[in-house]
Structures are given as C-alpha cells and as structure tokens.
C-alpha cells in the first residue's frame, strides 16, 4: 500500500466520518459497561455481610507469604511431572494413532489393540487408573518397582495418550486421499508416505487441540498427590490445615494461572498461525 494522493469523494468522506463516530461510540459504550459491571461486583462482594470474614480466611497477606515457599516447592513437582507426562503422552498417543492407520490383515491385532486402548483409557476415570497403578502395582511387591511418583506419572500418560491419540487420528484422517495417491504414485512406501507426507500435514493441523489438552493435563498432574507425593495443591492443603485459613489455596491457584498463561499464549499463537495458513496467507 503506497501512499497515493487521492482526494476522497464526498461520499467516501461521509462514510469515513460515520465510521469514526461509530468507533468512538462503541469504545465509550464498552468503557461505561465495564466500569458499571466492575463497580457492581466490587460493591456486592465487599459490601456483603460476611466480607470481613472471607477476606481474613482467603486473603491474608502474611499467611500468603508464609505458605509461598512450600507451595512453590510443590509447584516444582507439578512442572516436572507436566513436562515428562506431556512428552510421554504425546509420543504414546502418536504411536497409537499411527498403529490404527496400519492396513492389511497382519496388523489386525495391533489395530484392534490400539482401538481398544483409546476406548478403555478414555472411558476410565483418571483417579481409578491412578489408584490401580500407585497402590496396585507396589502391592505386587515385584523387584524394581518404580517409585509412586513414576507410577502416578505413568497413569497420567496412559490416560492422556488415549485422548491425544484420537486428536492425532483426526489429523491423519484430515489429510486428503489425493495426497496419499500422489505420494504412492511416486513410489513412496506406506511408511514413507506417513512420515514425509501425511504426518507433517496432520501435526500442523492438530497442534492447537493438542496443546489445549496439554493445558488440561497441567491441572490433572496434581492428582498424583492422592498417592502421596506433595504437589502445589497438596502443599497448600497442608499449610491451610495448620492455620485453619484458605489463603494458601489462593496462592496455589494464582501460581497455576501464572503457569498456564505462557502455555495458553503459545496455543493461541499456534492456532492463529494455523488459521492464517488455512486462509492462504
């Protein structure tokens, strides 16, 4: 768009002026309604009869400072678990999705197993998987049983891989058959076609929903604390049990949101880029 000197016609001038008025008007309306709703909320909450009590119980600055180190220690566990489980679940999910695309009667058992997996682990509540692994497996008293933390992580990986496999599969199936025909006509094998033609296109398309599942996983990793390890929420629970005050939970909640922001921002960015690519930009 180079700057070309052009005198807008009266009709265009009228349109521009009208649009400008409309813009100013909508900004004013948005500001006014935001202020009104905000004030109403603040007045309702702080003016409530029990506000003082609630403020003491949930928003005690001193207690927040005291609980912070413990909650942070717990959060470090969440972060480590999240990284390991996200990688593990993505890899396992991809593997299951690819296994489901194998053709030929030889692969029937593998296909059936992979399909059964996604049915079982998407149906089974995470907490039950967690209990089965963290309490059941050590109960076998086998040599070299991994720690409860590892077993808990495994439960998360197994469950989330079921969901992620279906997202991957949707991506694989969204690649048009003509792409497969083109690849096969060049002499590429099924495996080469998958690796160089189908998967690269599929992964780009499903990156946003995959990352969305990782954001969900971030909250669910805390459930391993049911089996013993102390995560951020569990640390907050311990802290609040000592003082009969819920402020540590608020601390943990704020930290979780802060942790999620970068991940969500990346997801939005990836989604935006995918949308732009779709529109041929």
């Amino acid at each position: 768009m180079s700057t070309v000197l052009h005198d807008p016609s009266p009709a265009q001038q009228a349109r521009t002026a009208y649009r400008r008025r409309q813009t100013v008007l909508s900004v004013l309306i948005a500001a006014a309604s935001t202020a009104a709703v905000g004030t109403l909320l603040a007045v309702t909450v702080t003016g409530a009869p029990g506000w003082d009590r609630v403020q003491q119980t949930f928003l005690d600055p001193q207690l927040a400072r005291d609980a912070l180190p413990q909650v942070l220690t717990g959060l470090w566990l969440n972060v480590r678990l999240l990284v390991c489980c996200a990688i593990g679940a993505l890899l396992l999910g991809l593997l299951i999705a690819v296994l489901r695309t194998l053709r030929g009667p030889v692969f029937f058992p593998i296909r059936a197993l992979a399909a059964g997996y996604t049915y079982a682990f998407r149906g089974l509540p995470l907490i039950i998987v967690l209990y089965l692994l963290t309490f059941g497996v050590p109960g076998l008293r086998l040599q070299g049983t991994p720690s409860v933390l590892v077993l808990g992580g495994l439960a998360l990986i197994l469950t989330y891989a079921g969901y992620l496999a279906e997202v991957f599969r949707a991506g694989i199936e969204s690649v048009h058959p003509s792409q497969l025909a083109a690849a096969r006509s060049l002499g590429l094998t099924h495996r080469q076609t998958m690796r160089h033609v189908v998967l690269p296109q599929a992964l780009r398309r499903v990156a946003p929903p995959l990352l969305n599942d990782v954001v969900a996983l971030q909250k669910d990793v805390g459930l391993v604390s049911l089996a013993g390890p102390i995560d951020a929420v569990r640390a907050a629970q311990i802290a609040s049990a000592q003082t009969f005050n819920y402020t540590p939970y608020i601390v943990a909640g704020v930290l979780f949101v802060l942790l999620a922001i970068p991940l969500i921002a990346v997801t939005d960015q990836v989604t935006l880029r995918a949308a732009r690519r779709q529109s041929g930009g």
């Binding site: 025909a181 006509s185 002499g187 690269p200 296109q201 780009r204």
Partner: peptide, 21 residues
C-alpha cells in the same frame, strides 16, 4: 511389489496434488 512398479511410472493428477508443506 506395487511400490517398486510405481517408481518406474510417473503420474500427474488433475488437481496437481503437490505437497503443501
């Protein structure tokens, strides 16, 4: 092996079918 046969035959499609990525 159809893969080996296709290496000796080139094919061009109506809708080009280039790999967009």
């Amino acid at each position: 092996d159809p893969d080996k046969v296709r290496r000796r035959i080139g094919m061009v499609f109506q809708s080009y079918n280039l790999f967009p990525h």
